[in-house]
Design a protein around this nucleic acid. Structure first.
Length: 727
DNA sequence: AGCACGCCGACT
DNA sequence: GTCGGCGTGCTC
């Protein structure tokens, strides 16, 4: 009897044994449908054995092995196993987290989608007179017409004519009217770039190319506008020429279309697949399968794309590596950047981490020699200099609707000179607080320990943490006073204020509320580029990776919020954000100016920012981290617990600490309520574990995790977060 | 995670 | 007498 050991999507850290289905090819990594309890599930064959590890009477027979999906490659399974070990998460759940949902559903066999192929008109096809085809056969006529005009048609173009065109093309193929042409890998090394490369870019490209077949973590540290993308493109070109695949990770869905367009334009003959959570399940599955078959030369996606099978992988690029959205915050709490580094090492290929403001972890690794840093200090665009940064002390000055006189003046200047300007405020909605003038009431979320944000346009109050919405009350629910006062400023309020101050200006607000619709952001970008906008008002969405050629002024409001935060990474994040925002100004020949309204203009962060001195600031933060013994000078793990009542969560954590025998080099902190103590109706607490040795921490966690699973677990949901970013 | 089994309170 | 609350425990 042959036994297969199967990983399933259940929160149990073990495999499940089944009798192999009769007379089928058995492969490790194959998808298999098995009976589990009362239902059926999809699992992965992890091992094949002669004997089961459970009594024989318990064994059931697996139903069917998916033949249409090739088995997961051994290296991908290894990657999953690493994640399971490192993040202490059941292997089955790790694997299922990495597979497209459509493959996990037990719906039967997915249709095969291939990379687009090219159909070229043959001489026989050219000789066909349109009149010989019945007029009612519209698809044939249109296909033939297009073929005669262009000489060839890709399956993708054919699809645009009609969804049934693929069948018609097959008919043409059988009749010998067209022939199938393989799309060639990048035939020539495409070095023609629109710009003259800077010396720094050339140095970086040559350094990476010189060791293209070896594992290396390259930290591409380049100021905004220094042309990091060009370095990615040049190295990618080299690998595509060698018929290797390139994986590119970007932090946000909003950034995929932009980078996708750049890569598509540079490598028109390479098949590019983009993978992110906004795709339909079928689209995602197809992209994944095309990558697995090696048909996709470039895979570009968000963090989930790190788990794509890529048989010919030759390079990984992580753009904006410092971005926190590479870390998944629930389920498998992995960092796609860190997993990417493991994967590069495993495959023995280079990985490029790109950023204008590297995470302190990466920066530290670079200066200690674990990573190799390549610096781009000069902006690649001719005549573009870094913007001048000035501060407005808001404690010494009167504000009008949250805006200072110098800032309004600068905006007016831009308007008269017909240049674009931008106001950055990291707060959506109209006002972050709504309070009653006569009593103490303020609008709070019933499910979270948060304030409700006033959204005046929609006349409602919203919780930005759980998404709860409620109608704006006409009067104070506590004392009945009708004088409810919005306090503080959000994007909507600033937009309204600017409209009042500059009635003739064209103002565009950009925040999450505004770009919900799929195409909204794209059309806004077009409007900005066509200079149909004078003043942009927006959140950090505006700061990330976009190029606004006519933008010469940036105003920053309310940046101080995170200056004296309890989160030890808040300052690092703020600095990165401000560098990014400042980098928007003055890129193409126009001198840029940045004005920051702050109560603490003397804060060291602002000093470093003024001189665009990332290194000075990073060195300063590193000193602090060293003294306080925080990452990168220590490694952390967080045990999170949530329960209907905080006491229960704390009690669970206290029990958890009691399971620990004192271990050298492992620091255990006291259980404390989380920053957002209440979220979505549950109360949360956590416990921090810290060690200067990653290895020691891992050993400890492995042992502890087993014990944690055995705690009789009433109503407490808990999870381990290794290398946590949020507390 | 699901899903069943199981043991105590208010209903046709 | 049963319907149903969700506490406990298992799934190969």
């Amino acid at each position: 009897m042959i036994i297969i050991r199967v990983a399933l999507d259940v929160p149990v850290d073990s495999l499940f044994d089944y009798i192999a289905p009769d007379a089928t090819q058995l492969n490790i990594g194959s998808l298999v449908r098995v009976p589990f309890g009362k239902r059926f599930m999809i699992g992965i064959i992890m091992a094949i054995a002669n004997d089961a590890q459970v009594p024989h009477e318990k064994l059931k027979q697996a139903e069917v092995i998916w033949q249409d999906v090739p088995p997961l490659p051994a290296t991908l399974i290894e990657l999953f196993e690493f994640c399971s070990r490192y993040y202490h998460h059941p292997i089955g759940m790790v694997i299922m987290n990495g597979l497209p949902t459509r493959l996990r559903s037990s719906k039967l066999l997915p249709q095969r989608a291939s990379a687009p192929s090219l159909f070229r008109l043959t001489d026989a096809g050219r000789a066909i007179a349109p009149s010989s085809i019945p007029a009612r056969n519209k698809i044939k006529h249109r296909l033939l017409a297009q073929l005669k005009e262009a000489g060839s048609i890709s399956s993708k173009e054919a699809k645009q004519i009609s969804l049934r065109a693929a069948g018609t093309l097959q008919e043409f193929l059988l009749q010998g009217w067209v022939e199938k042409v393989l799309i060639e890998p990048e035939s020539a090394l495409n070095t023609s770039s629109p710009l003259q490369l800077t010396a720094e870019q050339i140095t970086a490209i040559n350094a990476i190319r010189a060791e293209i077949g070896l594992f290396n973590t390259w930290l591409l540290h380049g100021v905004t506008g220094s042309g990091k993308t060009e370095v990615y493109l040049q190295v990618t070109a080299m690998l595509l020429k060698q018929n290797r695949q390139v994986l590119i990770l970007v932090p946000e869905i909003n950034l995929t279309p932009q980078l996708e367009a750049v890569f598509r334009a540079r490598f028109p003959a390479t098949y590019l697949v983009s993978l992110h959570s906004r795709l339909s399940p079928v689209e995602r599955m197809h992209g994944w399968l095309q990558a697995q078959r090696g048909e996709a030369g470039i895979v570009l996606g968000t963090r989930l794309a790190i788990f794509t099978p890529l048989p010919k992988l030759g390079l990984i690029i992580v753009d904006e590596e410092h971005d926190h959205s590479f870390k998944q915050q629930d389920g498998l709490r992995y960092s796609a950047r860190d997993v990417a580094i493991f994967r590069a090492k495993q495959t023995d290929i280079p990985i490029i981490l790109g950023s204008a403001t590297p995470s302190l972890e990466s920066y530290y690794n670079a200066i200690t020699g674990r990573y190799r840093r390549l610096c781009l200090r000069i902006r690649a665009v001719k005549n573009a200099t870094l913007p001048v940064i000035r501060y407005i002390n808001t404690r010494a000055i009167q504000l009008k609707e949250g805006l200072s006189e110098p800032l309004l003046l600068a905006l007016e200047n831009c308007l008269t000179q017909k240049q674009q300007s931008m106001i950055f405020i990291n707060r959506r909605g109209y006002a972050p607080v709504l309070l009653c003038k006569s009593c103490t009431w303020l609008a709070a979320c019933s499910r979270c320990s948060s304030r409700l944000v006033l959204h005046l346009a929609q006349k409602n109050l919203r919780c930005h943490y759980c998404g709860h919405k409620e109608q704006l009350p006409p009067a104070c629910p506590q004392c009945g006073d009708q004088d409810l006062m919005p306090f503080g400023h959000g994007t909507q309020r600033i937009e309204a204020a600017l409209a009042k101050f500059f009635p003739e200006a064209r103002i565009l607000r950009v925040d999450r509320d505004n770009i919900r619709r799929k195409e909204a952001w794209q059309s806004m970008l077009t409007a900005i580029h066509q200079q149909q906008v004078d003043i942009l008002v927006g959140t950090q969405l505006l700061a990330k990776g976009h190029y606004f050629p006519n933008l010469s002024f940036v105003g920053v409001l309310n940046a101080d919020a995170s200056l004296y935060s309890t989160d030890f990474r808040a300052e690092e994040r703020l600095f990165a954000q401000l560098m990014q925002v400042a980098g928007r100004a003055g890129r193409a020949g126009t001198a840029g100016e940045v004005l920051i309204q702050t109560e603490f203009p003397d804060h060291p962060l602002y000093h470093a920012l003024k001189h665009h001195d990332y290194d000075a600031h990073a060195q300063m933060l590193l000193k602090e981290r060293e003294i306080t013994h925080f990452p990168p000078y220590s490694y952390q793990a967080l045990l999170n617990a949530e329960a209907p009542h905080i006491d229960v969560a704390i009690e669970f954590l206290t029990t958890a600490t009691k399971l620990i025998e004192p271990v050298k080099q492992i620091e255990i902190f006291d259980p404390v309520p989380a920053q957002m103590a209440r979220l979505k109706g549950l109360e949360r607490a956590h416990l921090l574990i810290q060690s200067s040795s990653r290895k020691k921490l891992q050993l400890f966690l492995s042992d502890w995790y087993i014990k944690l699973c055995k705690i009789p677990n009433r109503k407490v949901r808990w999870a381990l977060d290794v290398d946590p970013l949020e507390f």
